[in-house]
């Protein structure tokens, strides 16, 4: 009982008297159950899966997706979507490369990249709020703009950086025990965002915006500020994802973000956050990215052809979304 209560607290409903709790807990827990099942399945399908080096590799692979999906989770909780993220990641990666190539120090480089990526979010938020247009359309347009900017920044090719600073050189490869440092940083971000969404005033406004925008407005909330904040955070996280994308490939590829594709949305939805907004938790997006990471890894280990991997991944995403929407009654 105590454990259950703690858990209910974690997901934001600690009312033991509610008869809907049992069902709700099961619903919320299903991504975790899925992850455990998948883990067992993966271990039995391949004997390489459980090796330390492979698991480290999985964590490293999911980290970039994790940063991007964190921002997406915030935006989806507000009842919107941010398709510009993958373009923004590309833009940030090329910006990292070009700035480093021009001899910038790491700290000012990071600040400029995050400022640029957040500005994309700011624009998304303001345009959607002022013109009251579907976020889907605006952010899709912004994605194209970002990919264009990436090409412009990179001069139309992949940017190779000479004389990399050791910090950037080792950012992706550093480990603490068997856990990559970048995954630890990822967990740090998730913790901060979790506290932000669950404990602060702005966090409440973000959930409330997705729950019912009209009520928020009638209650005196400036919904433009709330929505724009969510998009700025999403842009910021795209910037962080861009920096780590660079740290893994050590070059500025203007198409780097497209590898994330729809995984960003999929990770959020698989984690149980509702596309309709107002429900979900950033913590469960971690489960989402791990599920996607393990599936990809296992398909590789078992040796499926690339086309088969694509088909299976796509079907799994559809399956996860169907399951999650069915539970909404």
């Amino acid at each position: 009982m105590k454990i259950k209560n703690t858990f209910m607290n974690l997901i934001g409903n600690n009312d033991p008297a509610s008869k809907f709790n049992r069902k709700k807990m099961l619903t919320t827990l299903s991504p975790v159950i899925g992850l455990v099942a998948l883990f067992i399945l993966a271990s039995s399908l391949s004997n390489v899966f459980l090796t330390a080096s492979n698991l480290t590799n999985v964590l490293r692979q999911v980290s970039v997706l994790g940063f991007a999906a964190l921002g997406m989770t915030i935006v989806i909780i507000t009842g919107n979507i941010d398709l510009s993220i993958i373009g923004n990641v590309s833009m940030s990666t090329t910006l990292v490369a070009v700035l480093l190539q021009n001899g910038w120090d790491v700290v000012p480089m990071i600040l400029v990249v995050l400022l640029a990526s957040s500005t994309i979010g700011l624009l998304n938020g303001l345009i959607i709020s002022y013109f009251k247009i579907e976020s889907f359309v605006i952010t899709m347009g912004m994605q194209v703009v970002c990919f264009g900017l990436s090409l412009f920044i990179a001069g139309g090719r992949t940017v190779i950086v000479d004389n990399l600073a050791p910090f950037m050189l080792n950012l992706a490869s550093n480990k603490l025990g068997m856990i990559p440092v970048m995954f630890i940083i990822l967990l740090g971000f998730y913790t901060v965002f979790y506290i932000f969404t669950k404990k602060t005033k702005m966090g409440r406004y973000i959930y409330a915006l997705g729950g019912n925008e009209e009520v928020s407005y009638v209650s005196g909330v400036n919904v433009t500020i709330v929505r724009t904040t969510a998009y700025i955070l999403s842009g910021l996280m795209a910037g962080v994802a861009g920096i780590f994308t660079f740290s893994r490939s050590l070059c500025g590829d203007p198409a780097a973000g497209s590898a994330l594709g729809m995984y960003v949305v999929a990770a959020v939805v698989i984690g149980g956050t509702k596309m309709s907004g107002g429900r979900g938790s950033v913590l469960f997006t971690i489960i989402g990215i791990l599920i996607i990471g393990i599936i990809n890894n296992t398909l590789n280990l078992v040796g499926f052809e690339y086309y088969a991997q694509q088909i299976i991944q796509g079907l799994i995403i559809i399956f996860a979304v169907v399951i999650s929407s069915k539970k909404r009654r």
Partner: peptide
């Protein structure tokens, strides 16, 4: 339901 309460939020919120 449309301009009064946020249905999926708690009484407290």
């Amino acid at each position: 339901k449309t301009t009064g309460v946020i249905l999926n939020k708690s009484v407290a919120v």
